[in-house]
């Protein structure tokens, strides 16, 4: 199988150097662009399998680069951001970013995100039965089993879980979850989301206070794994 190719768009030489070493040692091909303009051109000439995009670029804002890329590029885009800018992260995710990671990041975590995003590029899975740790979810029959035992969910709880499961490993923003499960008019109704995530965790997590499947990405959304 060919090596997957990652395009890194970042103006920091040190970060570029670090990323090249980390990604190449993980058996990925790396191409690098130092500005948003170059990045868009390089992506257009030869579309990579994944784009790693710094949101704080000097020439164009990362958000604009993202919008421009999303005009035609359908594969994964992971945003590199700094902490304490959750609003930017949420905007980027709503603008079509696949995932994000904040600086300072752990190389191991970054590689895991990259692998998971590339895997999702390739398999447009519509399997009906999905197994995730102790959970077995049958999307067609609308049933959930935990350790083989049937778990009773309400219709909304199941819709929420199904959305999570279809986007396994990926962060979903509050707005996105509310829109997909409750509808366009409910995008600000975060209390619905809080309530249903809480009741869902009580049913599917071994320790709902320290959830393993539905984890909170503070200020951004939730991730299912």
């Amino acid at each position: 199988m060919n090596k997957a190719e990652v395009l890194v768009i970042d103006d920091e030489a040190q970060i570029q150097k670090l990323l090249r070493i980390a990604l190449e040692s993980a058996d990925l091909n790396v191409r690098q662009a130092e500005s948003g303009r170059d990045g868009v051109l390089m992506a257009a000439n030869h579309p990579p399998d994944l784009i790693l995009l710094d949101i704080g670029l000097p020439d164009m804002s990362g958000q604009e680069v993202l919008k421009e890329l999303r005009g035609w590029y359908t594969k994964a885009i992971i945003i590199l951001s700094v902490q304490a800018s959750e609003a930017d992260i949420v905007t980027a995710l709503d603008n079509g970013a696949t995932d994000y990671i904040t600086k300072p990041f752990r190389t191991g975590e970054l590689l895991a995100r990259i692998r998971s995003a590339i895997r999702r590029n390739n398999v447009e899975q519509e399997r009906s039965i999905i197994v995730c740790g102790d959970l077995e979810i049958d999307l067609a029959a609308r049933t959930v089993k935990r350790d083989g035992a049937l778990v009773k969910l309400t219709a909304t709880e199941f819709n929420l879980l199904a959305l999570f499961v279809r986007n396994e490993g990926r962060v979903l923003t509050h707005r996105h979850l509310l829109r997909e499960v409750w509808g366009v008019g409910y995008q600000q109704e975060t209390q619905y989301l809080r309530v249903f995530v809480r009741s869902l965790r009580k049913k599917i997590e071994t320790d709902p206070e320290r959830p393993r499947h539905i984890t909170t990405e503070s200020g951004v959304g939730y991730r299912f794994s």
Partner: peptide, 15 residues
């Protein structure tokens, strides 16, 4: 201000 589940919030800090 937005709706917060305090269990979730503190649980995050604790872990």
């Amino acid at each position: 201000a937005d709706w917060c589940d305090i269990h979730e919030l503190i649980g995050g800090v604790v872990s």
